[in-house]
Design a protein around this nucleic acid. Sequence first.
DNA 1: AGGGTCATTAGATAAAAGCTATCAATCAGT
DNA 2: ACTGATTGATAGCTTTTATCTAATGACCCT
Lengths: 311, 311
Amino acid sequence: MTLTELKYVLAVAREKHFGRAAEACFVSQPTLSVAIKKLEEELGVTLFERGGGGELSITPAGERVAEQAAHIFELVDGIKDLAAEAKDDLQGPLKLGAIYTIAPYLLPELIPHLHERAPQMPLLLEENYTRVLTEKLKKGELDAILVATPVEDPSILALPLYEEPFVVAVPANHPWKKKKSIASAELENENMLLLGSGHCFRDQVLKACPALNRSATGGLQKTLESSSLESIRHMVASGMGTTVLPCTATRLHTSSDSLLAYRPFTQPAPSRIVSLAWRKSFPRPRAIEAVRQAILATSLGCVDKIRPGKR
Amino acid sequence: MTLTELKYVLAVAREKHFGRAAEACFVSQPTLSVAIKKLEEELGVTLFERGGGGELSITPAGERVAEQAAHIFELVDGIKDLAAEAKDDLQGPLKLGAIYTIAPYLLPELIPHLHERAPQMPLLLEENYTRVLTEKLKKGELDAILVATPVEDPSILALPLYEEPFVVAVPANHPWKKKKSIASAELENENMLLLGSGHCFRDQVLKACPALNRSATGGLQKTLESSSLESIRHMVASGMGTTVLPCTATRLHTSSDSLLAYRPFTQPAPSRIVSLAWRKSFPRPRAIEAVRQAILATSLGCVDKIRPGKR
DNA sequence: AGGGTCATTAGATAAAAGCTATCAATCAGT
DNA sequence: ACTGATTGATAGCTTTTATCTAATGACCCT
């Protein structure tokens, strides 16, 4: 049984005439005749009673087959319709992931811009470690991720979006409040609060400030395994120590703000590059582009946006 | 879009693997690959995301297409099922017609026999004149008819079933009650009650008894336009006159029976041949055969059944 | 009997659906 | 980093199927 045969059945049922039905299907009359006969043989049932004269009538079986065929074509049209809808990249949910040190600072600004560009694209958001996000991306459990490490996987494409300098956060009463900028070496003897391992930002800070590694066993730094940048910021505000933050983290205003001071690093300041990554095979390029556009549209004043072509 | 393509989509959606899906469909992997690609191009949508590795995932669009396709195949199976049912000639209603002078005498016996042979074949019965029945038969509004005139239409097949002698019905107090048989010529001076024109039985009686024609203007016969054999029988019982009946009409017992007497014609007795007729193109030969068998099985004692071959 | 109207059959051709063999990409082990 | 295994895509060829034109056959009507 083929859809073509069913189409022919419908035409004959409608026209009650092989010749006219053939015309309506844009095929020759023998074509249609043979096709109907083939279907009748396959089903083992006569669908139409051909009376020699001008009389052609539908058997009860033919009637029911035609009815069922009509329903089939409704569903076929349904498939075409939903395919036409799905054709639009910006239709249907996008599963977007971001690491813990990006999500809280970027997403609040990103979402409205993205919604403006793609109102029919609901977002399913997930925060996690780079490693987990990458795995989920490859498995298809996420469609796109925002990460800071350059992604080196042949099945993944990544686009750098912006370069974000790091800054030093100190309690408001800290002597550094008077300094214009801090050199990374100066952090060595500070009481540094660091994120737990697994956070790529921790590794980036340690890499950017080799001074910290030297004192790693000395013990002035404190690794806070189950914490977040926000919690650490509050700890700094309470005077527990000092920390390094990505600059976007300083833009979120809280009641602790007056107890904190941010100071830039001395040039060249350490920084991270935030990238948007997706599977090479992900079939919605315009959805990715919308995310990129939305991020470029955000007013993350402190960062250096990377326009395509550059880099 | 073809049903084959949709079948492949379902297989890939189920197996999540082109190779296994191809195996499940008994085709080679390239065949399936190409077919899926073709459908994707036609719909303009990617249905499956092929990640280089062992990972194949369905896009939301693919998911919905597969779902819809499953519904389509339910309907396709539905067509096959209903065709399998309809395959049986003895399934589904049979539109059976009979003339006024046969129906009341044959059908009561016929129906149980037919129901025994074809319990799944409901009967839609119609009584009418031969002319109307024949027209409806040709138009497909009836599937088979029981008539007494030999049907001479190229698109209609007819099978003689039985030969039914005519008998004379007289009031119980009629002098003929003492006679063994009546010659048709003797009817000339009787007060004959006849059916209205349009009833073929009227014509047959007039043809069988030329004596009646001779006195047609003389006026001893009375034509009862809007009457039936049964009414005429009651009139005879009430003494209004005499009539001729087909012998099967004498088998229906009513309260008038004691007021009536039936006498055969002198040999050779006039008679009619009752035939079963159907469109040459009617596609349920076994349904026709069942009707024939059922009629042969009836115990119409007074008739001469015609077995096939004889005629 | 002849003409008209359909449906069916036959033979040829072109489109498609299929197969085998091969390729390219990726992944897992060594 | 090489190697082999796995997986889907591609290429080239063959077979099948769908379709056409033209002829044939069946049937009804005048």
